[in-house]
């Protein structure tokens, strides 16, 4: 592989690509192994034929400054090569902004490593998401931080869908913000939440609380409904067979599709 990388090195020299800043040597200096350096090269040249190479070094530097090690840097760049296209100053602003919304060292690294796409989101957009969570869903500052830490993908989701999910859980299931945070609600797809909830509700195992927050039966916790895998959910919470739930899911899909169609045709009228 040493031979290979030397060849590649030569090739890129020969092809006279403007790789003024990004060299195998500089990569080695950052702590990448030969193979990793090779892979970095590959990912860089896969984005717009290498025209982004001039940002690459600054991107890498910024990520190292965050305290990420070479192998996690490599992994996240493979997941999200768009990061090579982001200017250093913007990247720095975005990282600072994430700190400002409460992601301390440790959680910041974890979020970036796990969901690097969060650095493709503009400062303005992130502020918008935070304001939405504060104002439309009445989460506290700390809760918003928790959401960004546990479900960072929310920053790229359609906020009207997020709002619908929140309202469903808040009004229809009667669950308060604190419990939503505990259950990491925003990691789960609306259809899955609705399907499990409706299944329990129709079996008589879940009730929407009344105005005073009271129910005749004791509802299972949102966390236990969402975090269980399907077998566990069916065995311990719904007490139903897999066959029943499988048919139920298909029935629900059709019911919702038809609702949407109807809703669509009302709007069109």
């Amino acid at each position: 592989s040493t031979l290979q990388s030397t060849q590649r090195y030569n090739r890129s020299q020969l092809s006279e690509k403007p790789v003024t800043e990004l060299s195998l040597r500089s990569l080695a200096g950052m702590g990448f192994t030969d193979i990793q350096a090779e892979q970095i090269y590959e990912t860089v040249f896969n984005v717009r034929g290498g025209s982004v190479a001039k940002h690459a070094l600054s991107t890498l530097t910024a990520l190292f400054v965050l305290g990420l090690n070479p192998s996690s840097v490599l992994k996240l760049l493979q997941k999200c090569p768009e990061l090579y296209t982001v200017k250093e100053s913007l990247l720095q602003q975005r990282i600072d902004n994430l700190r400002k919304v409460g992601l301390g060292e440790g959680s910041l690294q974890r979020v970036v490593a796990h969901y690097p796409q969060i650095l493709t989101v503009t400062v303005k957009k992130l502020k918008h998401v935070v304001a939405f969570l504060r104002e439309k869903c009445l989460f506290t500052v700390q809760q918003v931080t928790d959401i960004l830490r546990d479900s960072p993908a929310i920053v790229l989701e359609d906020l009207s869908q997020v709002e619908y999910k929140f309202q469903y859980v808040y009004f229809r299931m009667g669950v308060k913000q604190a419990e939503m945070i505990k259950s990491r609600l925003f990691r789960f797809a609306l259809d899955e939440i609705r399907c499990r909830h409706c299944f329990l509700e129709r079996r008589g195992l879940y009730q929407t609380p009344d105005k005073k927050g009271q129910t005749v039966i004791i509802n299972p916790q949102l966390d236990s409904i969402l975090s269980a895998d399907q077998d566990t959910f069916l065995r311990t919470i719904a007490k139903a067979s897999a066959e029943e739930y499988e048919v139920f899911q298909r029935l629900m899909d059709r019911e919702w599709q038809e609702e949407e169609k109807m809703y669509g045709s009302f709007e069109a009228d």
Binding site: R202, R203, G204, L205, K239, A240, E244, F248, R254, E255
Partner: peptide
């Protein structure tokens, strides 16, 4: 029906409420 059908009632209930 929960008294009459016991364990079976939730399964009958969800069926009654579905298509």
């Amino acid at each position: 029906y929960s008294a009459q059908l016991g364990q079976l009632w939730p399964s009958v209930r969800v069926a009654l409420l579905s298509e």
